[in-house]
């Protein structure tokens, strides 16, 4: 079982390949639809150091504010990644991201960026909101809370043994394409024909 410390360098990322199970420890940052759009409208100096070398977690958490003003993640599973396909490649290149965490996989533009800049797509288990929230040990700070609201804000978090699967790597490998191709072939056989409709 591999452990990956965040932030990570390019060499560590290039070692990961599709099918690896990895536990993440260190600092990451959340960001989903509003954040991705905002990050590309102009270069955000204040957030950039928190993206450099680490992973963005596509997640809209349920967050509790404690009496002392600190925050806790109550439920924090991944959201569907493909919505960020138009943005993610540019976020990776402009901010030096090493990882994207979400669910369902992403498209060819992101896959190309993973190879070009040395980054990896990490699939968290969809719906596992409690297991993943339990791996979030501390909320360090938050950006754009007022403007975006709780689910869309960018939360800087410290995680310990945060479980993910490598489903797209920096060598052009993607489990999603493999599984889909194989399942279409099996469907064609079950329907008694050469190929199924794509």
């Amino acid at each position: 079982m591999a452990e990956l410390k965040l932030p990570a360098d390019e060499a560590a990322i290039r070692e990961l390949t599709v099918g690896d199970y990895v536990e993440l420890s260190g600092r990451m940052i959340t960001g989903r639809d509003a954040a991705h759009k905002w990050l590309l409208e102009s270069f955000r100096e204040e957030v950039a150091p928190f993206l450099q070398g680490t992973a963005i977690y596509q997640c809209g958490p349920v967050v509790r504010k404690n009496d002392d003003g600190c925050y806790d993640f109550v439920a924090a599973g991944p959201t569907t990644s493909i919505r960020e396909e138009p943005y993610e490649a540019d976020v990776i290149s402009q901010y030096g991201l090493r990882g994207v965490i979400g669910k369902g996989g992403m498209g060819p533009k992101t896959l190309d960026a993973l190879g070009r800049y040395g980054a990896v797509y990490l699939h968290a288990v969809g719906g596992a909101a409690q297991v993943l929230a339990a791996a979030v040990k501390r909320v360090e700070r938050v950006f754009m809370l007022e403007e975006f609201g709780v689910p869309e804000a960018m939360w800087v978090i410290d995680v310990e043994r945060f479980p993910v699967m490598v489903t797209m790597d920096s060598h052009g490998g993607t489990l999603h394409e493999e599984v889909e191709r194989e399942s279409r072939e099996r469907l064609a056989r079950l329907l008694g024909r050469e190929t199924s409709r794509v």
């Binding site: 349920v62 288990v125 719906g127 596992a128 409690q130 699967m165």
Partner: peptide, 27 residues
């Protein structure tokens, strides 16, 4: 396998949600 790992995680999550009386999924 990743399939096994995913189901392990899912079942752990189901137990945790029940114990902590918290939503199984954030959606």
């Amino acid at each position: 396998s990743l399939a096994r790992k995913a189901l392990d995680t899912i079942l752990m999550n189901v137990d945790l949600a029940r114990e902590q009386v918290a939503p199984i999924c954030q959606d």
